[in-house]
Write a protein that binds this DNA or RNA. Structure first.
Lengths: 262, 262
DNA sequence: AATAGCGTCTCATAATATGAACGCATATCA
DNA sequence: TGATATGCGTTCATATTATGAGACGCTATT
């Protein structure tokens, strides 16, 4: 799907708000309203409204009792959230490429979309196999009960979210998709015990998946790393190697994203 | 100066823009326009305009060729800039307090305001002296040629900025403020050689200052750490201790803010 | 072939932002 | 001390801007 990214009309004030935020640089961290007026050419009233809005939302804070402002906690938080998403891909990429090169199968990074209780494919590296290849496009999503990557996430979610996900009606993608509530809960229990999830043709005919969870600071899943391969190539020894690698890489990523970013 | 921080009227669209940014959390990092419409209750057209604006400015980026977006580089940069300012104060505070307790004189943290070529007092800890105390309020600013803290910054600025600062007419605060161009350039040269700046009554009668620069990633000054004290108490051995401490602390902060945040 | 979902575009209408002027406080200067 | 300047807050008639329902084109699904 094509999405236009040109700046549209009808957002004049928003543009000015970000123009003001952009004034706060490392070399010029503190601004009074009057300084902003001079530097931006905006009207005083406009600057006053925007600065107060930004301050009330924590994007700006006053320095002491002076009229000066600096960037605030909300800006830091926004950056942290942005880094988290970026980090996930950046942090995983080398391992994913190495793994894809080693086993020659498709490696998939999925993130939890908590609002929709779905797993979103955030990154993907194709194995360079001739003949059969598993392909899943970036941005594609599955409900949390169907497939290895979603199940690896679901199994390590807080109890209430798990129940909420299972209370929905469980869509079926193939004859092998698990839609029976008890069967899924059993599968999740097994996943937790083993530390990884397995799917056999739950989402696509003829393919299987293995996935390990990536956990956030509070110990619940935020993403999962998975390998998908055609069943004919899924020999036990291959699966063993893949499983060990995935579990090890995912644990490393978990450590990295929680330890690295304070 | 009192500055109101309540959210004012007349910023409706800006509020919606930030409402959208706030949807992007660690647990829900990816959103399509349609999802945002459902979750926020905003109109489709509004979401479309705002998402495109935010994407065109780098605050959002598309995931692959899907309609999904995540937070983008601009958000990370904003956060970094915010952290830098915060870090400066947070990072310096312990050292500043320790130093103030040890020497019992006022410690001042000044940041460069590059747009106005000024040094802004960003943090200040008063020495607990009876009798004479030097006080400089947070938010106060001086041009870069007058006083120890400003000079410590100016001396370690890029050549072109230094010239620009000196090309202005050099305001005098006391009889001791250096306003002669050659004299200042000499003082800056000395400051670079020694690694710290000294001011004797350049900004206030009866007080002297010692300041060491805090450098940014590119090796130019972004701030300075200073001690101000009444001249009667400025004995050579006291000044020696202060100078050593300041240089050491400032160097440590420089290392910290450049090494710590990648 | 038909349907549903998503992003885009348009345009008359309604709501919103604008900005000049004034008020008030503090700081600066004579 | 009074006079002047600067900074932030407030107001309100006006002009600009945002709104949103509907239509369009595209893709994926049935």
């Amino acid at each position: 799907m094509k999405v236009k990214t040109e700046s549209p009309a009808g957002v004049a004030l928003v543009a000015k708000a970000f123009q003001i935020l952009d004034m706060f640089q490392i070399e010029s961290p503190a601004w009074s309203q009057a300084d902003l007026v001079r530097a931006t050419g905006l009207n005083r009233s406009t600057v006053n409204r925007l600065v107060r809005f930004l301050a009330s939302h924590g994007y700006l804070v006053q320095i002491g009792s002076s009229g000066q402002h600096t960037l605030g906690l909300a800006a830091i938080e926004l950056g942290n959230r942005a880094s988290a998403g970026f980090n996930l891909r950046k942090v995983c990429q080398p391992s994913m490429e190495a793994l894809a090169a080693k086993i020659n199968e498709t490696v998939i990074l999925s993130a939890l979309d908590a609002a929709n209780l779905a797993a979103v494919c955030v990154d993907q590296i194709e194995g360079r196999q001739e003949g059969l290849r598993v392909f899943e496009s970036i941005g594609s999503r599955f409900p949390l009960h169907a497939g290895a990557a979603p199940k690896a996430i679901l199994a390590f979610l807080p109890e209430d979210l798990q129940q909420e996900a299972l209370d929905r009606d469980l869509k079926s993608y193939t004859d092998h998709t698990i839609v029976d509530r008890k069967a899924i809960e059993e599968a999740l229990k097994l996943t937790r015990e083993r530390g990884y999830a397995i799917s056999s043709e739950e989402t696509f005919e003829g393919t299987m998946g293995i996935a390990a969870p990536i956990l956030g600071p509070n110990g619940t899943a935020v993403a999962s790393l998975a390998v998908a391969l055609p069943i004919p190539r899924a020999k036990p020894e291959t699966c063993k190697i893949i499983t060990d690698e995935l579990v090890s890489i995912a644990a490393g990523v978990t450590r990295h994203i929680n330890g690295g970013a304070a």
